[in-house]
Design a protein around this nucleic acid. Structure first.
Lengths: 154, 154
RNA sequence: AGACACCAGUUACC
DNA sequence: GGTAACTGGTGTCT
């Protein structure tokens, strides 16, 4: 009867540039961590927002069966998008409020699909505010980015 | 035998609200800038489109004798107005296609008059797209607006 | 329905 | 200082 939590974060060196995403997942029984799992990945040429999105997507896609999970992100873009904006976008053919095409549609649709089977509670926290789990997700994102950074000159 | 160019821009804080206009003028001989001149101004209560219009008007009114000049704006309103819509408006008594009175008639007529003596080539560029001259005109517009902004609190 | 501009706000990434 | 993204709004025309 464990509760599932995920903290997600993205990092990007350049924006656009090499980027990475990281996820810290935990199964909790009360205050006890009964299971922990870490995911990370990266790309050579991407943006901060794509990495934030991909972190959340990977958290959800890592779930094997339909469950309840609380996902915590420091990205207002992801949190507001998935809990609010996306409903309007599906209605109006993925246009923003200024009639421009929504960016990163591929990932928003993948996130929407990944979310479908689960009962997700989305939370937002301020970044760099001393949340240990958010900081761990940040480390993972940076680690995920590492292989895609251009070889140091030196 | 220098070629004349002007870049114009407007800015407006509030719309309607305090606004400014800016003009960068250049006389070029080939790739060489042989002369440069900057104009700016503002008003306490105006609109973005009036400022865009006034920038173009001031560029033309600054010319002493009839000449050829290329004016570059990022405003589709000004560019399309002066090169297209205005002909219809003069014919039909300054009504829009919906029979409404054309807005800013005073400035459209002043622009038309200012243009009469010259051979103007109108160009349009996308704003905020990294055109240095457009960015300079933008700075001038903001500077022109400055004296008309309400005194800072604090 | 379309286009351009102007403004206000929010978060993140550098 | 910049980019990546979104929300809300007005000024104007076709």
């Amino acid at each position: 009867m464990a509760d599932l939590y995920a903290w997600t974060d993205g990092a990007c060196s350049g924006n656009p540039g090499p980027g990475g995403w990281g996820v810290l997942m935990r199964a909790m029984e009360g205050d006890t961590i009964v299971k922990e799992r870490e995911l990370k990945g990266g790309e050579a040429e991407t943006t901060n927002n794509r990495m934030e999105l991909l972190a959340a997507i990977n958290a959800l896609e890592a779930l094997t069966r339909g469950t309840a999970i609380t996902i915590t992100t420091d990205s207002a873009y992801v949190k507001n998008g998935v809990t609010g904006w996306i409903h309007g976008w599906k209605r109006n053919g993925w246009k923003t409020s200024n009639k421009k095409p929504v960016k990163n549609v591929d990932l928003w649709q993948r996130l929407d699909e990944a979310q479908r089977r689960h009962k997700v509670t989305w939370e937002w926290i301020k970044g760099h505010a001393g949340h240990p789990e958010n900081e761990r997700a940040d480390e993972l994102a940076r680690a995920g980015m590492e292989p895609f950074k251009p070889a140091k000159a030196k």
